Simulated assay, not measured.
Amino acid sequence: MPDPVVQFQHLVEEIPSVFFVYDLPSQRITYVNAAYEQMWNGHRKQVNEELPALLARLHPDDQEYAADCFARLCTGLLRENVELRLLGPNEEVQWLCVRASLYRPADSSPSVSGFIDDITVEKAYHQNAEKFNTKKNSTLEILSHDLAGPLQLMHNLTGQLHQQLQAHPDPHLHELLRIITTTCSESIDLIHDFVDNEFLESSSVELKRERVNLVERVGIMVDNYCRTELTLALKFTLETSAPSIYASIDENKFLQVLNNLVGNAIKFTPAGGHIRVGLHENPDHVLVTVADDGIGIPADLQDGLFDKFTRARRPGLRGEKSTGLGMSIVHTIVLLHQGRIWFESEEGHGTTFYIELPKGL
């Protein structure tokens, strides 16, 4: 038993976290505290015999990831906490957080030691919060079109009515029309300002990255849009190259990026159009696409699209306004993820945005 463990054994034995020491040359666990028996109903004296069965319970999506993390840990390159899933007898999932480090004493063999915590409850809470946050972001984009569209129509019709009644001498009627026009305009601005402010705030906070199954999380977002196909008169689909695709991202910020791109596609795609979100896994990166068959971006507006207050800003087909900041923030968040973004567009034939993300952890 290593001296540090002997020195603090009375403390280690009382903590709820599993503490372990793994000897690298012999590939055996030389110490594990009593929490091991409480967490997995095992026997600490038989931990090396029980270890293969425990590792066999690793979620299939996490096995390669766990092996890569362990390899980096053994070379001293792993610095972050690692979250893994174990499957129970009835396929229930137990989430674990592993905090470990490499120990290389001068007078004895190298070892890996660390703590393992059961974070199942915290993870379930976090995933539910992110699920509803994802729905919130897509719902805001939907509402910005669903609510602002009729108000814009009323604003335009009131303007036409005002012109036709120019010869009418009733000042009270003209004042009522002015009030309706002003109210519609202010309401439209309020809706779009609220959505824009939600997105602007996302670029001012440091990234909180974690390993995320993009198929699952983006699927929730797209499903929310699919529920509004009749209302928006648009079709939404998700295309993936695998059932599960993982990347290290700040989930909230990255999904806001996708919501912004889908929102722009809605703005510039006429009724009956099709918006497709794609996820394609490659050896070292994930390619995310958002494609539409809308009106496209004119060639003379394509340069500088990701600049702040770009001259490419223009109102949507239903009168939606643009601050010119959206694409700049999208570009910033993608760069913060060490990714890159570009697009292809032809006027009258739609636009496709591409985001290349490193797979990370």
Score class of each variant (00 low, 15 high):
residue 13 E to G: 06
residue 14 E to Q: 14
residue 16 P to M: 05
residue 23 D to P: 00
residue 29 I to D: 02
residue 34 A to K: 13
residue 45 K to T: 10
residue 56 A to K: 13
residue 59 H to V: 07
residue 59 H to I: 11
residue 59 H to A: 06
residue 74 C to P: 01
residue 85 R to T: 03
residue 92 E to M: 00
residue 96 L to E: 01
residue 98 V to E: 05
residue 103 Y to G: 01
residue 109 S to H: 06
residue 111 S to M: 13
residue 112 V to W: 06
residue 120 T to F: 09
residue 122 E to W: 14
residue 135 K to F: 15
residue 135 K to Y: 13
residue 135 K to N: 03
residue 137 N to L: 14
residue 137 N to C: 06
residue 138 S to P: 03
residue 138 S to G: 04
residue 143 L to R: 01
residue 144 S to A: 14
residue 149 G to S: 08
residue 151 L to N: 01
residue 154 M to Q: 09
residue 156 N to A: 14
residue 158 T to A: 15
residue 159 G to H: 08
residue 161 L to Q: 12
residue 166 Q to D: 04
residue 172 H to K: 10
residue 173 L to I: 15
residue 173 L to A: 15
residue 177 L to H: 08
residue 182 T to H: 14
residue 184 C to E: 01
residue 187 S to H: 08
residue 196 D to M: 02
residue 205 V to F: 06
residue 206 E to K: 11
residue 206 E to S: 15
residue 216 E to D: 09
residue 218 V to T: 04
residue 224 N to M: 00
residue 230 L to K: 13
residue 234 L to Q: 03
residue 242 A to L: 11
residue 243 P to M: 01
residue 248 S to R: 09
residue 249 I to G: 07
residue 269 T to N: 04
residue 279 L to Y: 08
residue 281 E to V: 04
residue 281 E to S: 15
residue 282 N to D: 10
residue 283 P to M: 09
residue 285 H to W: 08
residue 287 L to H: 07
residue 287 L to Q: 07
residue 295 I to Q: 11
residue 300 D to F: 08
residue 300 D to L: 02
residue 301 L to T: 11
residue 306 F to A: 03
residue 308 K to F: 12
residue 312 A to S: 13
residue 320 E to K: 03
residue 323 T to N: 12
residue 325 L to M: 15
residue 326 G to D: 02
residue 328 S to L: 02
residue 331 H to E: 11
residue 336 L to H: 10
residue 337 H to L: 03
residue 345 S to T: 05
residue 346 E to T: 11
residue 348 G to N: 00
residue 355 I to V: 14
